[in-house]
Write a protein that binds this DNA or RNA. Structure first.
Lengths: 116, 116
DNA sequence: TATTTATGTCGCAATATTACGACATATAAT
DNA sequence: ATTATATGTCGTAATATTGCGACATAAATA
């Protein structure tokens, strides 16, 4: 039902990045991976206050976008940040934000008209 | 069912910003408002390839976060970007991204182990 | 070999999002 | 006053997300 292919592919890609960051658990996972360079999968599940299955699902979403990846080490999996992909999306966002912010004069409630 | 209050309020707030940007229609709206300083509501509906009702819903979400606001002008409503709120969230995101990116060494597939 | 352990998969329920038509309201124009 | 116009509201259907328990798999260990 989602009509995303009606939009500019660049905006679509940026929206996918934003969606990956749109849940606090996923932000917390990224933060945790940044702090602990060891990045053992099980530790993430312990750290995040959600069930292991749910955390696993969030990990899959981050992995699908390439923001993290996992390295199998016997029984364990070490997940870690993928700096290059993160930088790529960060640059994409910066470019967008700059365009939005440097747009010159906006209304900013300067008139006495009723606002909503 | 969403267990967002289990997380750090800062991460929660950032995730709300990301969610607002997680649909290409909303990104397109922000872009359009940045380009056209006039920002007439009806024009937005014409520009975005979705029904007026749907566009209106997206506008409401952006408005709820304070990223845009509308000024009633008779029959029309002029929507426009709210630079201060956008800057606030942008700074929040930058701070987060910096923490993630400057985390030092990550694995980046340096070993010969199987990756997923 | 049997058991433990860490991860992965499946299916399901609850909730949220997306999209839109039909209708309501309120201002402007005729 | 009537009509046209722009925006707002409601209900609803389709789909996506979130969360989790139960089970499967595969490696390490006893």
């Amino acid at each position: 039902m989602i009509k995303k292919n009606k939009f500019n592919p660049e905006l679509h890609e940026l929206s996918e990045f934003a969606k990956a960051l749109s849940h606090p658990a996923r932000l917390a996972i990224l933060e945790y991976l940044a702090e602990t360079k060891t990045c053992i999968s099980g530790d993430i599940s312990d750290y995040i206050p959600l069930s292991r299955t749910t955390v696993y699902q969030h990990l899959k979403e981050l992995k699908a976008l390439g923001l993290i990846h996992g390295e199998i080490d016997g029984l364990r999996v070490n997940y870690c940040l993928c700096e290059s992909t993160i930088s790529k999306y960060r640059a994409m966002f910066d470019e967008f934000a700059k365009r939005i912010e440097s747009a010159g004069i906006k209304c900013e409630v300067k008139t006495k008209k009723k606002c909503i």
